[in-house]
Simulated assay, not measured.
Amino acid sequence: MSSPHPPDRTPIRVLLVDDHEMVLQGLRAMLARFPGEVEVVGSAGDEAGAVRAVTAHRPDVVLCDIRLRRDSGLDVCRAMRAAEPATRVVFLTVYDDEQHLYQALRAGASGYLLKRIDGHELLRHLENVQLGDIVIDPGLAGRVATAAAHLRHGEFWPGARLGLTQRESEVLALLVGGLSNKAIAARLVVSDDTVKTHLRGLYRKLEVNDRGSAVAVALRECLFR
């Protein structure tokens, strides 16, 4: 059964932004189960089309993938909000990680949901977004809350305030633990070259030139306990 919907309330007008036709068809079919509650007003597959559509239709909510073949969903979100500042964008994606979530919220999104969601959950989140709430996939929100309890104020993960990405932070933690490049690669299931790339990035951001200095900064800044 669909959620109760006041008879005097107009349907939530939704724009879909995804570059996979099967995904668009699936979302249309899912939302079609709630006539009178949700109306899909259009769809787009890239930034230019999304901006045109949001300007033409002025939807209540935009459901947008965070990664498109030709454009970044983050850039699409910013462009749509620049064109229509009242636009509420909810990312609907397969990327189940905190870094994408934080990037989405910084881009001005009103939500971050995963494509495993069912229709009733999606409808409930759309209703909450229309009321002005920020919605986040419950599992992801739980992980973020747990991590936040162990971080200093202003950090999303250890070293965030120093400019480290989440993966650079993971590499640094393993450095502090005394692991070699090869062991780090095995632990993170990446190549040795990928580890070296992350090391170069974190060395630059920490303004150091070697592993020992990076570990010293990590301990001095109390990034890991």
Score class of each variant (00 low, 15 high):
122 L>Q: 09
104 A>F: 02
87 T>C: 12
124 R>F: 05
71 D>K: 05
102 Y>F: 14
92 L>A: 14
147 A>K: 11
115 K>S: 10
112 Y>W: 09
140 L>A: 09
144 V>W: 13
100 H>I: 06
76 V>K: 01
111 G>R: 02
118 D>N: 15
137 D>Y: 03
78 R>I: 14
105 L>G: 05
139 G>P: 00
100 H>K: 03
84 E>F: 06
134 I>T: 15
136 I>H: 13
141 A>Q: 08
107 A>V: 12
101 L>K: 02
132 G>M: 11
143 R>I: 10
119 G>Q: 04
148 A>S: 12
140 L>Y: 07
72 S>D: 04
93 T>Q: 14
125 H>W: 02
117 I>A: 14
125 H>K: 07
120 H>G: 02
91 F>T: 05
141 A>V: 00
82 A>H: 13
150 H>N: 13
102 Y>R: 07
102 Y>N: 02
116 R>C: 11
76 V>L: 04
87 T>M: 05
143 R>E: 14
83 A>R: 09
82 A>D: 10
108 G>P: 01
112 Y>P: 03
148 A>F: 06
112 Y>R: 04
150 H>C: 09
101 L>H: 03
132 G>D: 14
95 Y>K: 13
95 Y>V: 08
134 I>D: 11
132 G>Q: 12
136 I>W: 13
109 A>R: 05
76 V>Q: 02
126 L>M: 04
132 G>S: 11
142 G>Y: 00
71 D>R: 04
113 L>S: 01
111 G>A: 05
77 C>E: 10
136 I>N: 13
146 T>K: 07
90 V>E: 12
77 C>R: 11
141 A>S: 10
142 G>W: 01
111 G>S: 11
112 Y>E: 10
72 S>F: 01
110 S>A: 15
93 T>V: 11
125 H>G: 01
77 C>K: 07
138 P>H: 12
75 D>I: 08
